[in-house]
Design a binder for these strands. Structure first.
Lengths: 187, 187, 187, 187
DNA sequence: CATGAATGAGATTTCATTCAT
DNA sequence: CATGAATGAAATCTCATTCAT
């Protein structure tokens, strides 16, 4: 019977926070343990290694974002409608899980090779959507480019807001969706 | 140029390569020394610390990109013409200095606070340009958003090409510039 | 027998198996618990420490072998007859309790000093027998040497069989007894 | 240029001493470092891991004993003459390198599986000799049994002397060779 | 009696930096 | 200027033992 409840959850939470703030290598097991309020050794009852914490976090959140995106992408509404919803979903995820989103990006930078071992990545959901839009003739630029424009813009928007360089005003999602839709449909 | 100048350059070169491939903390002084073909102690003849290597690399390449961008941004031609040139310049820098560009991004992720101590960052050049375009009424979205759309898209394009997900075909720069121009000018 | 008695026996059994396979330090309390099918904490209901398990095992099996040997050594038959029976008894013990025999040897290697605290060790039984044979003039080599020849040979035979280098054919005990008897009686 | 000379040699020396006295797991890197007179970290400039120290020691000394034995076993003299020399060589090795011999035995106990990866083990030299003797009809017991008798006896003799139970008198080697020769040739 | 989370001490290993040569 | 052994601090991980449940 656990003395603390959900210690495993707490470890993941603390790790995510610290990794996204300081970096993976820059965060020690001791840092995480201290943040959770346990000792270093206790971490290892829940995870076999620091690396397992890292992988768990990546797969958890990458998959979570994927799920949210794919469920929108597969709705039975118009391409345009779904596109606007996708933009909103993506940004919502970023702003509600800023640590997770930053961590996912960091992971891509530091473990590019490892990323290839994971399935159901966010980009797969978007790629599928872009593909459909392109084949239906609505999206005019090929799917990879559409992906670059959309994901790049949204990610950078999030980072600028996070960095205090940009404001997150009401209607931001709408405005961005508008701009991006025009960009990829040549309207 | 004397031999030691060469060594210093080589150290920076190797460090940049390794940092961009594996991460900063993940790269040891020994790794760098081995890559250069000298020993650990010798590194300290040229740099007082590992951190100095990191800072030198960041300021060097961030400034270099800034210089390239600002010189285009300040040309005496039309906004549109300069915009197309900026896109080309940005992508050229990425594809010609992929390690440097990755390193700059990584540095932003890991040392967000520290970045604020540097001046003449690439985004400053672009921000200035967007500002001018917005004030002249040609660029319709406010400068931060324009920056997000442009930088985000270009960066993501580079990463997709680097990751083997997208091809770098001839005309890519043109196509991107076209798409982005439409996006931020509402044409 | 009550259930906890069974558990205690099982702990000793698992510990013996693991110690003999992997070594004492190399076997953890968790390893033992898992092998028994209980948890770490439960072990401490039956033993105050890992060391107590180790000591219990050593004294149990060292004494058991001693008992078997001394009862043969003290029989009222001829020296030769008893010698042949001793060889058989020794080898039987080895082959029927290979883990115990390996553990006893390992304990001798790792805890040479501690061994001196135990009484009724197998070698005492054999030493006594050799002494008698030497004094009666039947065994020609002094008892220590006789002990070395006999114990060394039997132990090594067991190890060679265990290691798959030698076959345990029928009549092996006879053959060995024959050879050893000749060796120590100069016949 | 080394600050200490032969640090690597000293590490091996200290490790051998401590391993043979206390056991492998029971000896820490700190113990070894302290014995050598350096810090723990310095060990790792000479060996990549504790395990490498262990393996190096085993292969070094197992091979050394093998070399000594095989060179005697392959001499062009009579079987009997060579046998007497082998006994002397074996015991000499034990008494001159007691730590090494104990360590080799310990390694066999703790890493039985790993031993199979090594070539040129002492037993191979002796096995070859016994084989020749058996085929020539001089040695009457099959080679595995002869090996068990000879190696077992010599090893046990060494251990008894080491343990203070037996004296190493002049002529011990002769006496043992005599006894063993009779045992395996049925004379 | 049993569980298994947690502790705490310590083991192995890593690595930026120093320093004797 | 260069070498590379050594330091020393810290990081990851292990594990016998304790203890709340």
């Amino acid at each position: 019977m656990p003395r603390h409840q959900n210690t495993k959850e707490k470890i993941l939470e603390s790790a995510l926070k610290l990794f996204s703030e300081k970096g993976i290598r820059e965060t020690t097991i001791k840092d995480i343990a201290k943040d959770v309020g346990i000792t270093e050794g206790a971490i290892y009852r829940h995870f076999v290694s620091k690396d397992q914490i890292v992988s768990t976090l990546f797969s958890t959140y990458a998959e979570r974002l994927y799920e949210e995106l794919i469920s929108v992408a597969e709705e039975k509404t118009s391409i345009k409608n779904r596109f606007f919803k996708l933009v909103k979903t993506f940004l919502n995820f970023c702003f509600e899980n800023p640590q997770a989103f930053k961590f996912i990006n960091l992971f891509h930078y530091l473990r590019a090779e490892e990323v290839k071992n994971f399935q159901n990545l966010p980009k797969d959901a978007l790629m599928k959507f872009m593909d459909e839009g392109f084949k239906k003739g609505i999206i005019k630029v090929r799917r990879e480019l559409a992906l670059a424009v959309v994901v790049g813009t949204l990610e950078r928007t999030f980072l600028l807001v996070e960095g205090g360089i940009m404001e997150r005003e009401a209607g931001l999602e709408e405005e961005l969706a508008e701009v991006l839709w025009k960009a990829i449909t040549y309207q």
